[in-house]
Structure formats: C-alpha cells, structure tokens
C-alpha cells in the first residue's frame, strides 16, 4: 500500500490523492492495460480517459480530414472527441468506457489504429 502510494506520487502527479472536501479518493483495483503497445496501469472501473490523463496522455486521436489532434473535451460522452480504438474497435468514447484489465487502447487515426502513412 505504502509502495503503491509512492508509485502514484511519482508517476501520476495528475491524480488527486487527498481532496479537502472529498477526502481520500477511493478507486478500484489497480490493473494493467496497453496504450499504443506500451504497458501502463490504471484503476479498474475508472474511465479509460481518466487512466490515460493520469499518465499525462493528451492526444486520443487524429481527425480524418485534417489529421488534427483531439483529446478529452466534454468528459461525459457527448462530444465524442476522445474516441480511440479499444480492443480493436474504433470510435469508443474513452471518457465513459470503464477500464478493464488487459484492455488494448490505441490512438485513433481517422477511424483506424493505423497511422495515416500506413493507411
């Protein structure tokens, strides 16, 4: 537990550990998943976008027409800007899709996980 806390503080500075009003932030089990082929960790049940944000990930996808970067915008599943390729399926709203152990999360290029130069 102690070690996990230290790990958090060093690796995930964007996580709020203790909040003045909400107290200690309770999370689920710590799980591993892959982000663009890299093994990373998050908490089970939190939105994929939250786990990525804690890792400092800003870019979730590049748009189809102008190839411009997009990330979290509304965080409640409305705007669809944060969609990524999750377990091979494109257009998954990461801000409302709960993280599960072993998930494969990939940056979305247009509607594919393949960078544009390979499409």
């Amino acid at each position: 537990m102690e070690q996990e806390l230290i790990w958090d503080l060093e690796q995930e500075k964007q996580r709020i550990m203790v909040h003045p009003i909400l107290g200690r932030i309770e999370k689920g089990r710590r799980v591993k998943f892959t982000y663009d082929g890299r093994e990373v960790e998050g908490y089970e049940g939190e939105p994929i976008a939250a786990a990525l944000k804690a890792q400092g990930v800003m870019i979730h996808r590049y748009t189809a027409k102008k190839h411009s970067p997009r990330g979290i915008f509304c965080a409640i599943g409305r705007c669809t800007d944060c969609v990524m390729v999750v377990d091979g399926e494109p257009n998954i709203r990461t801000c409302i899709t709960p993280l599960r152990e072993g998930m494969t999360v990939q940056t979305q290029y247009g509607v594919s996980a393949e960078p544009f130069e390979n499409q």
């Binding site: 915008f73 509304c74 409305r78 705007c79 669809t80 800007d81 969609v83 257009n91």
Partner: peptide
C-alpha cells in the same frame, strides 16, 4: 451530422 449529432 457527425458522431456527436450537433451537441457542440
């Protein structure tokens, strides 16, 4: 007419 259906 995209994914968000004009929400934004």
């Amino acid at each position: 007419m995209g994914l968000c259906q004009g929400q934004t």
